[in-house]
Structures are given as C-alpha cells and as structure tokens.
Lab assay of single mutants.
Amino acid sequence: MAEAPPRRLGLGPPPGDAPRAELVALTAVQSEQGEAGGGGSPRRLGLLGSPLPPGAPLPGPGSGSGSACGQRSSAAHKRYRRLQNWVYNVLERPRGWAFVYHVFIFLLVFSCLVLSVLSTIQEHQELANECLLILEFVMIVVFGLEYIVRVWSAGCCCRYRGWQGRFRFARKPFCVIDFIVFVASVAVIAAGTQGNIFATSALRSMRFLQILRMVRMDRRGGTWKLLGSVVYAHSKELITAWYIGFLVLIFASFLVYLAEKDANSDFSSYADSLWWGTITLTTIGYGDKTPHTWLGRVLAAGFALLGISFFALPAGILGSGFALKVQEQHRQKHFEKRRMPAANLIQAAWRLYSTDMSRAYLTATWYYYDSILPSFRELALLFEHVQRARNGGLRPLEVRRAPVPDGAPSRYPPVATCHRPGSTSFCPGESSRMGIKDRIRMGSSQRRTGPSKQHLAPPTMPTSPSSEQVGEATSPTKVQKSWSFNDRTRFRASLRLKPRTSAEDAPSEEVA
C-alpha cells in the first residue's frame, strides 16, 4: 500500500521540484479525499487562508506561464504608474523644462484676455472677434484635454484613487474654476456660431469669465498662502490700524457733515460726507466734493493729517511682513540645501571615528588635552595620597570615625582645627580638600554678606603664586578674593596644593 505523501509545513519547496517556489498556508490543510486516503489533490490556500480556484496559477517567480503573465502585467503596471506620476508632476508640480508648457498656457490665456479687451473697442471689434473665435476653439481643445489628463493623473495619489477620489480631486477650487471656464468657452462658441440675436450679448458677457483663467496660473496657491501667512502673522497690528482709521473716518465725516450741510449742497446727507471722507483719507482725492466753510476746511485738514497716518499703516505693516517672510523662506531654502550635506558629513565622520582606533588626527579633542595637561583624576589621586601619608595610611573619614581611648597616647600629631565659614567644625583632613566650587561659593557668600568690609582692609600687593609662602596660607580663606572669576591669580592660587600645619609646630611643606 502506497504511503501518503508527508504533510509539508512552511514555505519550503517540495523535494524533486527545486526551481518551484510555492506559497503554502501556515497550517497544512488537505482535502477530505486526501485525509481519507483517496487520490485527491490537496486544496490550495492563499496567504489569508482563502481557498484558491482550481485553475488559478500559483503565485511565485517560477510558476510557469502564469508567472510570465504576472511579470508582464507587473511591468506594465509599473510603467503605467510611472507615467501617471510623471504627468501629475508636470501639471501640478512643474520643475525644470516642465515650465515651458505652463508658459505656453499663460501666453494663450493672456492673448485671449487681450483680444477680449480689444473686442470692446469699436475700431478693432470685428478683427478681434474673428481672432478670438479661432483662439477659443484652440483653448477649448487644449483645456478640455488638460482637464481630463489632470483628473486621470491624480490617481497617482492615494487620496485621489478610484471614482470617489477623482470626484474629490474635481471638487478642488482650481478644478472648479477650470470647469466653469470650459463651460463658458463652449457656451460662447455655441452662441457665436448660431448667428442669432443673442450671440452678441452672450459673447460680450461670458467672454470675461475667461479672466478666471489668470487665476489658474498659480494652481498651488503659493501667492495666496504667502499673503495669508503675512496677514495672520500681523493680524493684531492690522486690526488696530484699521480700527483707529475707521473711527477717524466716521468722526471726521460726521463733523464735516454738521459744518457743511447748510452751506454746501455736496454734503446734503451723511452718506455724501462718508464718501468724501473715504476718498480723502485714502489719499485718492477725486475733487467732486470739497468743503466751502472755514470750519469745514479746518476739520477736514486736521482729520486728514490724523487719519492718513492710520490708513497708511497697513501698507507699511504688510510690506515689512512680506520682507520678513521672504527672508525666512530664503533662510529655509539654505537650511534645506545644507541639511543633507551636513548629515552626510556627520555620518562619514562617525564611520571614520568608529573604524580608526588610533585617531591620531583628533588634535583638538579632550583626549588630546588630557594627555598634555594633568587630568583631574590625577589631581584627586594626588590629594588622596598626600592625605593618607599624613594620616598614617588612613583616609580622612576613617580618621574622624576612629575612637580614641581616654589616657591613651595619640598616634597622630595634634592638628589645628579649622572652621569653614557658615558651618560647624569639620575634620581637619578636609581643609585642604576644598575644591574650586567651594572656594568660589565661599567668595560669593563673603561678597553678599559684607562687601563694604573688603574695601576697608589695607590693599594687598598682588604677587605671583611662585613667590607666595606656603606656610602662610594655612586656610583657603587666605586666598585673595576677587569680584570676578576671570582673575588668573585667584584661579592659579585655588589650584595650588595647600599643606596642613599642626598647632604646635607648623613646618612648611611643599608638595611638588
């Protein structure tokens, strides 16, 4: 009796068929016929556990003709996506030579605008209408194809895939403007070719909807975003200037109206006075309405000098805001240009540092100066060695804690006790272990408590650290204090090793 083939788990290929790579489910599931010992083939499952149809090819690079078809379809799909992405970037994010197409579109729109203006002049109306009709045909074809291509290429973005995504893309403001202008152009052409009475009025009214094509030149909205950011950044200043200017306008108009309503027919109503105030304070000055009385002229002159300053403030605020924003954008561009080279330089330096163990090129690091100058660790070890030599091999803490019996001779020589300023008595072995921070803190506390006492003391002649007598400086308080830590004499004296002298005989010792 033939044995059933062993159940295979995992992703390994079956024996005897090495080139074939078959994806098997996580659990080997066989058909009921196979479990019962029949000759049925096992049921194939996909990666998600769903059964595959009987005629479906197995996924994998070596699955025969199905694999070749899959490779061809995958390559075609990649080319399709690449083309779609390229078209989308050309239309929505132009760079380099892609601006040539947008310059061509701008020339078409500008020519249409010029011809629309010439069509309103009686001398050039006939020729402009003929040229404009031909140009409209060209623009309908160009913009119609462009609109379709834009909607198709938007599928390269995830949020615009599918018919719902394309509809979302078509609802964008600039796409809506394109659609309105396209419909208006078709209506103008249809009305112009019919030759009816309505054609002339339709051409004159709907052609100027094509002015909206100038708005579509900035599809990404960079200028509007820049203007919005400047207004938002200086909103408080703008609101303040406009508010005060509006108050000056209504008060000036009302007072001039009261002064001129009886003697001047131009100011017969408050609305006429508001019109005069707006034209005057905005420095336009049509001259259609002028005050005639001396009181009205004085009020107009005073409020004009006051109001023009507030009406001119928004222009200066926006101008300075634009300058600052442009400078910030230039700085951001320079930062973006330098970020990648800086990151590459840091990575290269780290690779060199991690692979080169000698690091002989590091001549400006802490390790280099640590090898030249005595390190703080060596100074600490030197302090501890000196203290243990004086205390008979014991550390200062051990000397303080060691009990001394009554009447027993002390094995240590008597030492002079010292007192730290602002604290109780402490171990004499710690007097010379006072660090730089303690010395600086002690000097600052003395300056806070009594700076007036220092200038009363007789001035001391500054001497070099080499000429100081070591026996005289029994305490860190003898170090000359200065008002600034930048004094080199104080810094050098604080680094010197001060020996400890006994109370009975204080021989001067120098520590090399």
Rank of each mutant, 00 (worst) to 15 (best):
A2S: 02
E3G: 02
A4P: 08
P6Q: 01
L9H: 10
L9V: 07
G10S: 10
L11M: 01
G12C: 05
G16R: 02
D17Y: 08
D17G: 04
R20H: 08
A25E: 04
A25V: 04
L26P: 06
T27M: 04
V29E: 02
E32V: 04
G34V: 11
E35Q: 08
G37D: 10
S41Y: 04
S41P: 06
R43L: 10
R44H: 07
L45V: 13
G46D: 01
G46V: 06
L48R: 14
S50I: 05
P53L: 08
A56G: 13
P59A: 10
G66C: 15
A68V: 09
C69R: 04
C69G: 04
G70A: 08
Q71L: 11
R72C: 09
R72S: 10
S73Y: 03
A75S: 11
A76P: 14
H77Y: 11
K78R: 04
Y80F: 13
Y80H: 08
R81G: 14
N85K: 01
V87I: 04
N89S: 10
N89H: 14
W97S: 01
W97G: 06
W97C: 02
A98T: 03
A98P: 06
F99V: 01
F99L: 08
H102Y: 00
H102R: 02
L108M: 03
L108V: 03
V109L: 00
F110I: 06
F110Y: 00
S111G: 12
C112S: 11
L115R: 01
S116C: 00
V117M: 15
V117A: 15
L118M: 10
I121N: 06
E126V: 04
N129K: 06
N129I: 08
I134M: 08
L135W: 11
E136G: 00
F137S: 05
V138L: 13
V138M: 03
V142G: 04
F143V: 05
E146D: 10
Y147F: 05
C156R: 04
C157R: 04
C158Y: 08
R159S: 15
W163L: 06
F167S: 01
A170V: 01
F174S: 15
C175S: 07
V176L: 12
V176I: 13
I177T: 02
F179V: 10
V183L: 08
A184V: 00
I189F: 14
A190T: 11
A190S: 08
A191S: 00
N196H: 01
N196K: 05
I197S: 14
A199G: 15
S205G: 12
R213H: 00
R220G: 02
R220S: 14
G221S: 00
G222D: 14
G228C: 01
V231L: 04
A233S: 13
K236T: 00
W242G: 14
W242S: 09
I244L: 06
G245E: 15
V248L: 07
F251Y: 00
F251S: 14
A252S: 08
L255M: 09
L258M: 10
K261E: 12
K261N: 13
A271V: 00
D272N: 02
L281M: 06
K289M: 10
H292Q: 13
W294R: 01
W294C: 00
L295M: 13
R297M: 09
V298L: 07
L305V: 08
L306M: 12
I308M: 04
A312P: 02
A312G: 14
A315T: 04
I317T: 15
G319A: 11
F322L: 01
A323G: 15
K325M: 00
H330R: 15
K333R: 07
M340R: 07
L345V: 06
Q347K: 14
Q347H: 06
